[in-house]
Nucleic acid binder design. Structure first.
Lengths: 351, 351
DNA sequence: TTGCGGTGAACAAACGATTGCTCTATGTTA
DNA sequence: TAACATAGAGCAATCGTTTGTTCACCGCAA
């Protein structure tokens, strides 16, 4: 058992409160120099560290944040977590990680546990549009920040990218390459990124005067397996697409697998563009053309916003939206990979 | 502010202890049916959830575990974490994630914080040989389990794979393909996996009667960047290797990059074998031949061992060692990728 | 000698829950 | 009717800190 204040007090023949004041170098009270040094020696000798649980109870703060995401196995969220931790650890916080697998019930269960634990704040990257869980957080007055996806436009503190713009860039890029039948592996309409990236896709088509063929938009969700299935659907059309804009890189990777299995060459037979620029994207062969977003910064910015909220106590629904950038690689332009050698991916914080 | 026991007691005109007993369906005490239902209604109505911090103080358990790893961005640890969480969440635990980047001081700092928070147990996957941090854990009597790496042979609870065997398999495979000049991108000698995989590499060479050329062993560490640098060194030898056994898949990926940049064909000019079989390995082109270990199970088994330790209070230095399996892909045998299509990676829990 | 200011440290009340024990009715039995 | 068992609920201590308040004491000035 670690040593307690009371034990130290007994050993030093003083009252626990005195030890506490020395340990915290309480500015308000006066301690005799001799007493102080005696206690300080004792503190060092015993390596006293205050019981965080007791401290948490008294001070009503746990110095714990929680991160709720779909799946840490997805590289997107690994980078996000590092950003958050890098923002939180230097300020004395540690971080609980909760995976939901995109299942609302699990998200709910995790948030309830977290509330019971009195975590100081929550970063949520697994939210749905009009998510009751987010409403619940608001209602609980738990400090929180949404990342990547939002729940209701402009209502919550949020860090993410301009999804419409990113999807537009991606689609315009394919149009610029001469593609007309451009398929979209789309995210669920229950998720903001799903909706907004569709919107950007449609906007780019409309702007170019290309009619949107509903057959070319297939809902894939955000992970590899769904991307593969949706891709199968698209390739079985009588007039299959010559290019694909996938809602995420993982979805695009699913499409890679199918294309490869069918013997389609990328980009000659099928051009593919993704979204997020996860580390994996640049390592694929050919490299995946994608929309770069500064994931690590999503995390560190979100952590900072959350800590500000916690420390000031005010919840400003501030939104930080990064402008995404297209990164062209070999999956859309043959030979583009070689031109990229040695060029680091670019980041562009905005607003 | 969430509702407290005292407030509920006031509203129900009973003593807080009575509410507590109802909330916990205390088996020892008798409560009148009418009182019970009245209180139960109140509990539901107010959605009362006991303050976990206060509970933690009183009961001396926080229902929090901690996972300490080098870097969650490494796919190895993503899978590991999921295994742990999957083992812990159903039992009511949530999990703190701490990244050390392999820096001992950060590991130490995290462990100290965790101890102050009174986490119920720690899973450590970033340990060094003879690690003072592990000694400290032992001394603190904090329940813990080491994963993947160990600190001192046979002393600590441990989950991992048979590294010597895995490295032997990998090297034997290359020998079997006719390679004689086989390079090793080696892990640090301060880490058990580094040492044991070297040992397996040397054992396989010796067994085949191939003299070990010291120039062919270059220390790379466990991540991509180091793998690339070490590979450069090896390729600048007057007699460069024709095959590489890399201590981890990430290191092997570093080697891929260099080989590609130099225009070397894999596997014709350079065969490469890795270790761990991270999800990425199968997606590379060509697929990476590697030693499969059941990472997710490392996590779930470690979580179970830890919980057992926590609940029984006894620390048995039990070791669970999985037998690794070679997975042959295109990085060592041309065309092997095609044969693998649709065949899932195999798992083999042993002991 | 009395009173006062100030110093240094103890006191005690929280924070919110848990739990062994005590106490008071009520009902049962002799 | 008296003694006693029992159900039902309150009491109070405790977990380890923090912090506003009180208290004892000393030296000094009047």
């Amino acid at each position: 058992m670690p040593v307690t204040l009371k034990e130290l007090a007994a050993r030093a023949n003083v009252h626990p409160s005195t030890v506490s004041r020395v340990a915290n170098s309480d500015p308000g009270l006066r301690i005799a120099a001799t007493t102080r040094t005696r206690i300080e020696a004792l503190l060092r000798e015993t390596e006293y560290r205050p019981n965080g649980v007791a401290r948490g109870l008294k001070l009503r703060q746990t110095l714990v944040l929680a991160v709720v995401i779909p799946d840490i196995t997805n590289p997107l969220f690994g980078a996000l977590f590092r950003g958050i931790e890098d923002g939180a650890t230097p300020r004395g916080y540690q971080v609980l990680l909760c995976n939901t697998d995109g299942i609302p019930e699990r998200q709910r269960a995790h948030l309830h546990s977290l509330a019971a634990r009195r975590v100081d704040g929550v970063i949520l990257a697994s939210t749905f549009l009009k998510d009751p869980a987010v409403r619940w957080l608001r209602h609980q007055r738990t400090p929180y920040v949404l990342v990547n996806r939002f729940s209701e436009e402009g209502v919550d503190p949020f860090v993410g990218s301009d999804d419409v713009m990113g999807a537009t860039l991606a689609t315009q890029h394919l149009i610029g390459l001469g593609h007309v039948r451009i398929g979209h592996l789309a995210g669920q309409p229950t998720v903001s990124t799903g909706v907004l990236r569709r919107k950007g896709y449609h906007a780019a088509l409309a702007e170019a005067g290309i009619p949107a063929d509903p057959d070319l938009l297939v809902e894939s969700g955000f992970v590899e397996e769904g991307g593969a299935q949706a891709m199968e659907r698209l390739l079985s059309l009588s007039q299959p697409p010559t290019a694909i804009y996938a809602v995420t890189d993982m979805t695009a990777i699913g499409a890679y697998g199918v294309a490869r299995k069918r013997g389609l060459r990328i980009p000659e037979d099928l051009a593919i563009v993704g979204y997020n620029d996860i580390p994996l994207a640049g390592r694929l062969i050919p490299g995946l053309t994608t929309v770069h977003v500064p994931i690590h910064e999503f995390g560190s910015v979100a952590a900072r916003m959350l800590l500000e909220q916690i420390e000031t106590g005010v919840l400003t629904p501030r939104r930080v939206v990064f402008a995404p950038q297209l990164v062209v690689r070999g999956s859309s332009v043959a030979g583009a990979d070689e031109q990229l050698v040695g060029r680091p991916a670019q980041r562009s914080p905005v607003e």
